[in-house]
Nucleic acid binder design. Structure first.
Lengths: 337, 337
DNA sequence: CTGTTAGCGCCTTCAA
DNA sequence: TTGAAGGCGCTAACAG
């Protein structure tokens, strides 16, 4: 791999001159510039980012940690962030935490060693000591949380407007005439889940319906577990509709319904957060509360850049909290006979 | 961000000693080691990978380029590669080419500047000068192609056994009694598409059915385009079944069918490469030729590591070609009334 | 075992 | 406008 020195030698100039034409920051006379460019082409020279980063202590790299990019929501988030990063000349390292606290810690540490200039993180569902993250921020590496928001973490965050999103889904079910609406949530240690539950409760209350604790099903983010939970609950309780607060949960719930011989929309109404299918080609298509995944990623990266740029000198700005609106895609699973 | 020197000062030892305890390569006496570790904890020291990479000229980083990780097949591939990389203590930079030749070139250049030690690439569907890739290999950066295999590129490659995979699907349709089977392909400039077409033809021939050119529909990887193509073709031709050679193509085809008021399996049989849905919860569930996506990624990364390790000294081994078997998931779209 | 030191490739003053 | 030189943080000899 050729170095800047080899280019300089071939072009018959000094390394400084080559550096100038590469960066474009300092003007170089036409003839020298051409000679340098020719040498670059000839040698197929690619500036060494590693050396540049060491010198400038700027890696022009961002990190993003997601639980599992196999879940359709996250690739969109990543692409949003990637686009924002690309526009600023940054690249993005995306890694999966598999929702493990230990793994997340390792990844945070790895990204730190790589000297990424900022980190986007969807915190693992496993309870994570927030110290993992506060330390990073103290060390001067800005962190923006997205999608899932840990409690009491003084960091920027971007996610959906959970309460109103849940209301959107619940109101729709109420409008369709469902009354015994069960909510299937993930772990309530995630603020979002709590807020979604809250939105559900508000909608019911507003409709004059009492909250029935027997219809509050609290699971986690593993479809198998949720499926088991639902099967068990279905033995004694029969809701007429379901609101699932995330994709994996919905998957588990749907499997349980099928297992119990219940179908939607014939037997029960069904609404979930997050897209389960690629589109509406399949039946029963599921009514979905769609989060603006791409925008969440894009917006989060944008905030991260503001932090990175504004880091020099003046006091740290207060954490920003951005909440993007969700939208409802009404499909067949809430179409009553 | 503390440096190795600060750790050394705090622990009252030399930087060499700190380096030794961090790497574990050179033994250090118990008392010193403890002092160093304490200092590391105290300062929250994270070794600078950038400096280390510059010194050792090994970044312990791999790159992977996919067309669009929003397509469900690719996240699995990436995770497979990530797992293999992680096991070797490497990290992975995943980027999207959006199937553009220019973009792919930029990404290759970027990864090269980042000094990744090897690259996994799903070549862009747009015709790409193979020189982009051969140059990399000449420069000593091993490249493994996966999923899509460009013609005449002397590089390692990992993908599915296209011919037999297509036969699998076609034979199944034949067994179910379909006779006028249309094949909807992506661009034939991709070897895989050609091979899949070949498998389809072999199956038909073996069954004594003549190839009808009117049933050979050649599209691209953009659902909208394919949908338009299919709508037009359906105006004059009526196949009794479809074999789609990839996901985006299938999507376009299904949309066209719906547009024309045709449903599967009632009116036509349907088989496609690649999963369209998360699972079999939706109807009509589509019979699918499933590629071992995770394994493809894992295997490709493994080969890449062999190249990276074996790079020193001896002559370059001949390109390896790995073909993994596909499996058929029979679902409702081929269940005849 | 432990300390010292020379670069890895590049950018960035600073002089010429 | 161009060239020369120091040093970013670390590792890998090498010397002690």
């Amino acid at each position: 791999m050729p170095t800047i020195k080899e280019v300089a030698d071939l072009a018959g100039v000094s390394v400084g001159t080559v550096s100038h034409v590469v960066s474009g920051a300092v003007p170089v006379s036409e003839p020298l510039r051409l000679k340098v460019q020719e040498a670059i082409r000839e040698l197929d020279y690619h500036p060494n980012h590693v050396a540049r980063s060491l010198k400038t202590s700027r890696t022009r790299t961002l990190g993003i940690i997601v639980p599992d990019m196999t879940i359709s929501f996250y690739p969109l988030v990543i692409r949003g962030a990637e686009t924002a990063a690309w526009q600023q000349g940054y690249s993005l390292i995306a890694v999966n935490s598999t929702d493990g606290a230990e793994r997340q810690k390792e990844l945070l540490s790895l990204l730190r060693s790589q000297r990424v200039e900022g980190i986007l993180v969807v915190v693992a569902a496993a309870p994570v000591p927030i110290q993992q993250i506060t330390r990073l921020i103290e060390a001067g590496i800005p962190v923006v949380c997205l999608d899932r928001i840990p409690e009491k973490l003084p960091a920027d965050s971007v996610s959906v407007e959970d309460v109103s999103a849940a209301e959107l889904g619940t109101d729709h079910l109420l409008e369709m005439g469902y009354r015994r609406i069960a909510i299937v949530t993930g772990p309530l240690s995630l603020t979002n889940e709590k807020r979604r539950l809250q939105g559900y409760e508000q909608s019911l209350r507003r409709a004059g319906i009492a909250i029935d604790p027997a219809l509050l099903w609290h699971g986690n983010v593993r479809p198998e577990d949720v499926s088991g939970l639902c099967k068990q609950k279905l033995g004694t309780v029969r809701p007429d509709a379901f609101l699932c607060t995330n994709g994996p949960t919905a998957l588990g719930c749907l499997r349980a319904l099928r297992h119990c011989g219940l179908s939607t929309p014939e037997d029960v109404g069904f609404v979930t957060f997050d897209e389960l299918t690629l589109d509406d080609l399949f039946r029963p298509s599921i009514t979905t509360i769609v989060q603006p995944a791409y925008e969440i990623g894009f917006e989060a990266a944008t905030i991260l850049f503001e932090r990175i740029q504004g880091k020099s000198g003046d006091e740290i700005a207060a954490p920003r909290t951005v909440r993007l609106p969700a939208s409802l895609k009404v499909r067949e699973s809430t179409r009553r006979a």
